[in-house]
Every structure is written in structure tokens, then in C-alpha cells.
């Protein structure tokens, strides 16, 4: 057992999968000797060389396109976007080329695109976004967002092994804050499976990534007031593990959806629609959302904090919902 941070877990997953399978290789900006903007790839270049840890020029579209070409002839590329925000420059390649290939001519595209995302660092409008809904809307992409070091490890390994494109959202705020004792061995977390992070009876929270931790803190707060909150960590957003979600909602009859991305047409809207459709008879209150206001992320930390859906806002929303 060794204490592993969230970003250590990512590095471990990359290293283990590169050792296991020659076809796995990394592409990204400044990932070779430097190890990437957040050092997620640190040490891998020295071990695997420049043909498996590839520094690219400053480009995103070209990188995704090239990864597709390599994947079509048997490689398993793992891409790092320097910040999730820049994935917009590779958007066309992802949603039109990568995502549609298997449906069109049945060529598997094993590819992982790692997106360091999320706010909390006062990084402004272009280094703070949560782009999961951009991709969850596109058929043919698996979208995952692990919340813990254990899942960061297990889901990245599973994503690299899956024969499909996986958008892997890793939260920058969790990189060095989340730590866990992880055993040795081949630790996998299945894709497409949610996880009940806290059991409860009165309200269900559906959430993922950084807001999972805020939700757990809020649930703790509510417990003091006699409200028992169940917190479901979705982990995989698309495809969605409805069994776990609906089972929880049917048990508690109240749902709060929490996400960091902006609220309108956010992934929470999809969750709300499915819950309304499939759990209508069980619901005892409105399906509520706590999310980011429909604004870009402001630079000043105080301004940003005022918009982030943190534990206070979640706690307040839970109190209201519990009264129904």
C-alpha cells in the first residue's frame, strides 16, 4: 500500500498500460521530457522513448486526426490535451471523424483523450471549463469523469483497453488534493458503472468529479440535521448506468443533480429527463439542479467562487428538497 494522489494514479495507469501493451502510446504537448503541463506523464519518456511518448507541435485537431490514423492500423493512442478548454480546437476530429468511424465502417477506434478540466484555480474563462456535455451529446463517444485516485487509475486503464474512443475528464483541482492508499496489482474500474459513494434514505444526489466531494461534504452536513443523503458518483456519463441511478431515486424519491458545468443543456438536463421519464411514479419532489451559472468562468478567485457549485449551495438546495 502506498498513498497515491489522483495524478499519481493517472501516471501509474499510463505506465502500467504502456508496459502491458506495445501498441499503447502517448501524444500531447510538452509531455516528453517535461512530463506535461501537470507532469502526468513524468518519467514515461525516459522509459519508452520518443516514438511512444510523442511531443506534438502546438495543435489539437492534427493530433486527434493523427491518433485516429494510428488507431486504425492497430495502435492505442492516449492523448493529453494541455487543458480541456483547448479540445475545442480538435472538436471536429473528435465528433465527426473519431466518434463516427465505428458506426460508418465498423473499424474500432481505441483512443483515450485526457482532458484536464475544471475550475477552482482562478484560471479564467479559457482554463476552467467543464466540457462533458459537448461530447456526451455525440453518439460514439464514451465520456468518463473519475472522482477518486482509485477510479482515476482503474478507469484510465479500462479506457485504454476498450476498443472505443473515451473522453477522460480528469479534474485539475483533485490532482494533488485527493489521496488514497492503493494496493499493487492490476486495478480496473468497469466503464459504464456508477458507484454509490454514500448510502442514504431521503434524497439522492447524482454527481461526478469535483462536485462529488462537495456533495459528500454537504451530505455530512445534512446528516447532522437528520436528513440522510445518498450520493451517487456517476463516474461514466455516457453510456449511463441507469440501473444504479434509478434504483437510488426509487429508494429516496428525491433527486438533486450537481455538476460544475454551466446549467443550461448541461449533462444534468439529460439526467433530469431520464429520471422524470423512468422514475415519475416514485418522485416526491421536483428534480433539482445545482450547477454553474450560464457564464464563462471569471478570472478573479472571489468572482469564480461565487459561481462554483460548492458545498454551501448544495447544502442549501438539499435543505429545500428535503422539505417536500
Amino acid at each position: 500500500m502506498a498513498e497515491t494522489t489522483y495524478i499519481d494514479a493517472i501516471r501509474r495507469a499510463l505506465g502500467e498500460e504502456m508496459d502491458r501493451d506495445e501498441a499503447v502510446f502517448l501524444m500531447g504537448q510538452d509531455i516528453a521530457a517535461f512530463g506535461g503541463a501537470f507532469r502526468a506523464c513524468k518519467g514515461l519518456f525516459e522509459k519508452h522513448g520518443r516514438l511512444r511518448v510523442i511531443n506534438t507541435p502546438l495543435m489539437e485537431s492534427g493530433t486527434v486526426g493523427a491518433a485516429l490514423g494510428a488507431a486504425l492500423v492497430g495502435k492505442r493512442p492516449v492523448l493529453e490535451m494541455q487543458f480541456a478548454d483547448f479540445v475545442s480546437c480538435g472538436f471536429n476530429q473528435i465528433v465527426n471523424n473519431v466518434a463516427k468511424t465505428y458506426y460508418r465502417w465498423e473499424a474500432p477506434v481505441p483512443m483515450v483523450i485526457r482532458l484536464p478540466f475544471g475550475g477552482g484555480a482562478g484560471a479564467g474563462p479559457f482554463h476552467s471549463q467543464s466540457p462533458e456535455a459537448w461530447f456526451a451529446h455525440t453518439p460514439g463517444l464514451c465520456v468518463v469523469a473519475p472522482s477518486t485516485p482509485r477510479d482515476a487509475l482503474g478507469m484510465l486503464k479500462a479506457a485504454i483497453r476498450d476498443p472505443n474512443p473515451v473522453i477522460y475528464l480528469e479534474h485539475r483541482f483533485l490532482y494533488r488534493r485527493e489521496k488514497e492508499d492503493l494496493p499493487e496489482g492490476d486495478l480496473l474500474t468497469p466503464l459504464g458503472r456508477a458507484h454509490v459513494a454514500r448510502e442514504g434514505k431521503h434524497v439522492t444526489i447524482l454527481t461526478w468529479s469535483w462536485t462529488l466531494h462537495e456533495s459528500l461534504a454537504a451530505a455530512e452536513e445534512l446528516a447532522k440535521e437528520g436528513v440522510s443523503v445518498e450520493v451517487v458518483d456517476l463516474r461514466t456519463l455516457s453510456p449511463l448506468d441507469e440501473d444504479t441511478i434509478f434504483t437510488s431515486v426509487r429508494k429516496t424519491s428525491k433527486v438533486l443533480i450537481v455538476h460544475e458545468a454551466t446549467i443550461t443543456a448541461g449533462f444534468g438536463a439529460e439526467l433530469a429527463a431520464r429520471v422524470a421519464d423512468q422514475c415519475f411514479e416514485w418522485l416526491d419532489g421536483p428534480v433539482r439542479r445545482v450547477a454553474y451559472a450560464d457564464r464563462p468562468s471569471p478570472y478573479n478567485k472571489k468572482l469564480e467562487q461565487s459561481l462554483l457549485p460548492g458545498r454551501e449551495r448544495i447544502t442549501a438546495a438539499l435543505r429545500k428538497l428535503a422539505r417536500y
Binding site: G69, L72, N96, N97
Partner: peptide, 25 residues
């Protein structure tokens, strides 16, 4: 080894580069 097009013209050039990259690897 043939990779055909998507409608978005230009999009296949990086893909061709990726096929070449795999040869290099």
C-alpha cells in the same frame, strides 16, 4: 490499407499523417 473520407474536407490529412506515424513507430 485504404482510409476513405468524411465530408469535412481536409480532415483526412492528419489521419493520413497518423497512418504514416504508425509506420515510423
Amino acid at each position: 490499407r485504404h482510409v476513405g473520407m468524411i465530408s469535412h474536407l481536409g480532415s483526412m490529412i492528419p489521419v493520413a499523417a497518423g497512418l504514416a506515424l504508425a509506420n515510423l513507430q
